[in-house]
Design a protein around this nucleic acid. Structure first.
Lengths: 334, 334
DNA sequence: TTGAAAGCGCTAACAT
DNA sequence: ATGTTAGCGCTTTCAA
């Protein structure tokens, strides 16, 4: 491997100058910089990240801890993060907690505290007080995207408010029998999000003076299949609700499939509304409240990069707005 | 930050011994090892990856270059890779090429050759001769998952064969008017895969003595929406095909949605078959040929880890088997 | 089984 | 504008 010395020798300058020239630092003659660049290119020299990381104390990499990479929301947030990182020439280290819980502390220790990264963004994950202490002790700025957390800034939407908006939309159309398909995450992660959305459903009904019926709440698994099954149950009872508010777009699609399978129409027989802005919502003509995970991820990454650039940390959490998109899956009750 | 010296001092041994003890190397007294572990735990010591990377020449990280993280296939492969890496205590660096082509060489240079990783797996990506030369020169073993590539090993399925199987299945049911919805990748990436699948369609028809009609081939975009539109076109013509072979499961779902929207039944009026094993296939009762991206990713990662462990490189590419799953979306023609 | 010491390839003060 | 010189925190011979 060609090292910085090779380039220095080839150019006839010191390694310090090579380092400065290549990193675009000031106080290097343009002619020198050009010569160094040429030599580096010629020799195929690229600085070793271990060496520069060790010497400078910065890895130029950011870590993203995700509960899974197979869910739309997470990948969309990841893309937002990645977008900002690329602009800043930062690399992305992916820490996937996927499934098993035992791994978690190992991952945390082995990888995160090993200082492979300069900062950390966690998706819908909580940190224990101990973990936060450790993060602080390694000087790792961290931020959470998704669910709110204790003791750490976070980027997210107002889940309660968004859910209320969705249900209020249905109420405004004249619905009074509105069911809710609540989400449940496999690992018990991210519980606050489905809970907030459920609370929004209750609140909106209560505020409108509509009694909250226990049998109008069913649990799905944040995916199409289980939500479809949950809706099957909902529709098998004698009297059907006139509208369904699902805790996610995928769940709403599941509801639509169930409704269709029962020979009913959307929104003719039953109105359906979701939350997310999932691509399928467009495909299925689903009315929804879009949250913008890409933007959320980008915001998080930008905040951290800012901080790493030496700007004063913005300690405040950021609440992203949601967008109401009417695609016609809701209408006044028959 | 507590360093290896702190642990050495606390334990009263040399840093060399601490290093050996913590890494589980032989020739360390059990009592010493225990003491070192205790002290390390106590002090919250974790080795710096930059320092050990620099000293040892190994980063204990593997890079994955992906064209996008928002597509099912890629994330499934990633999970397979991640699974193996975790077992080996390797970290995963994600290089997302997402969209723009200009970025590519920058990413390649800046990140990959910077030796942040010990090995590289590329998803459905080709390498230029120059890039391969560079990879070799940094001693980076590399492998490709997905499309076949020149000059590099790759893990993948027999796309031509799988497509033939799908079409032969339809022919065996008695179909003679079989349409194909071909895939087209946005970035022009991964072109060989859709091409092979299309070739399989042609081959199977030809072999069965069925003329290949140009108007029975339409192009979708490897997603539900465009495939639905493509099918709309297919169905708007006078006489309908009796079966459709889609180049992916998502595309097959798009076809089903179009068919239903036309008031037709699957498989009553039109049979549909896909390729992939996408979760939606189950949801929609789609008959398909499952490829197993998780397994493909795992195989790739394992091969590289093997090689990094010093085992002789397996230079051969690996062809993964596909699994036929009949979910009833195909039947004999009416 | 353990320790001493020489790097690994860079960066960052401090000089010049 | 450029060079000198210490490290950064580990790993790894080589000795003991």
């Amino acid at each position: 491997m060609t090292s910085i010395d090779d380039v220095a020798r080839a150019t006839g300058v010191s390694t310090a100058t090579v380092s400065r020239a290549l990193r675009g630092l000031p106080n290097v003659a343009e002619s020198t910089r050009e010569a160094v660049r040429l030599a580096a290119d010629d020799l195929g020299y690229v600085a070793s990240s271990s060496a520069s990381g060790l010497a400078s104390g910065r890895t130029l990499a950011m870590g993203a801890v995700v509960p899974s990479v197979s869910r739309w929301f997470y990948t969309a947030v990841l893309e937002g993060i990645d977008h900002e990182l690329r602009a800043a020439s930062y690399d992305l280290i992916l820490f996937n907690l996927g499934g098993r819980g035992e791994d978690r502390s190992r991952v945390f220790h082995r990888s995160i505290l090993r200082k492979r990264t300069d900062a950390l963004v966690a998706l819908c994950l909580d940190f224990s007080a101990e973990e936060r202490r450790q993060l602080t002790s390694v000087g790792h700025p961290a931020i959470v995207v998704g669910g709110p957390v204790r003791g750490l800034r976070h980027i997210g939407i107002d889940d309660l408010g968004a859910a209320k908006l969705a249900v209020e939309h249905l109420i405004a159309l004249g619905h009074r029998d509105i069911a809710h398909i609540g989400g449940e995450d496999e690992a018990g992660l991210n519980r606050s999000v489905p809970e907030a959305r459920q609370a929004g459903w209750r609140d909106a009904l209560t505020t409108a003076g509509i009694p909250v019926r226990g049998d109008r709440f069913v649990l799905g698994g944040f995916n199409i299949d289980t939500s479809k099954q949950a809706t099957d149950v909902l529709l098998s009872s004698g009297e059907r609700p006139t509208a369904i508010f699902a805790a996610s777009d995928e769940m709403a699609v599941g509801a639509m499939l169930s409704i269709w399978a029962h020979g009913l129409r959307v929104p003719g027989d039953i109105s359906v509304i979701g939350i997310d802005g999932h691509p399928l919502a467009r495909t299925f003509g689903l009315t929804t409240l879009e949250q913008h995970p890409f933007a959320q991820g980008a915001t998080a990454a930008r905040m951290l990069l800012d901080e790493l650039a030496g700007n004063p940390p913005r300690s405040r959490s950021v609440r992203h707005p949601v967008t109401f998109i009417d695609r016609g899956s809701t209408a006044r009750p028959a």
